[in-house]
Design a protein around this nucleic acid. Structure first.
Lengths: 104, 104
DNA sequence: CTGTTATGTAAGTATTGGCTTACGGTAAGT
DNA sequence: ACTTACCGTAAGCCAATACTTACATAACAG
């Protein structure tokens, strides 16, 4: 989860992930639509893979990368953990708002 | 959204956020439970604030930080954008699995 | 009014990290 | 076989950044 969050933080790497999420693709095709070199994309894919966000399989000389369905699960769960806290905070805001209104 | 993701990437800063999300607290109290200096926490809080993840208000000489309810919204929305893609990938896995089973 | 508490900011440092070029290795085409 | 295409990795470089100590400011207590 730490690694997933760290992986998605970089804009370029996030662009790589978004591209792969749209549809599986080889490294070269991914690098085509980005303003960085192919090795850079390869390094980003390595990080994404180690974070459990993408999967790869050989297909001839090319390597096809696709999204890893299990990758986003923990991240989403972690986020939802604070969703409740955020709602509580929002409720507290409404409380304060009501109190202030009383003073008018 | 970029800034939010970037802010939550750092482990220490994420710990600060989690602490604040649990319950509002002044800077000193937050720094108490962390292995870094108080100024470091202050800097982390600044980043979190600019990312729209926390709010602060003066309370005497102390500054109380709390979670910003609106902060996690865009992040969650962005994540859900790929939830569908992940499910599609999972369905594709099942397809492949079924095909393989036919060959047995 | 002075000392203490609580915090933000500046300056400086060291580490991390993303990028490029160069290279090596494997698979396909001729 | 030789060449071409596709890819991962190593080395090196430069920018970003997380951390520290030192300093300046505001509020409260005595």
């Amino acid at each position: 989860m730490n690694s997933a969050l760290l992986a998605l933080a970089d804009p370029t790497r996030r662009a790589v992930f978004e591209r792969v999420a749209r549809s599986p693709a080889p490294v070269g095709d991914i690098a085509k639509g980005l303003p960085v070199s192919r090795p850079a994309v390869s390094q980003h894919l390595k990080v994404l893979k180690e974070a459990g966000l993408v999967l790869d399989h050989a297909e001839g000389a090319r390597r096809i990368y696709r999204i890893d369905p299990r990758g986003l699960g923990p991240l989403r769960a972690w986020l939802d953990q604070f969703w409740g806290a955020a709602l509580d905070a929002f409720a507290a805001d409404l409380e304060t708002q009501a109190k202030d209104d009383e003073h008018d």
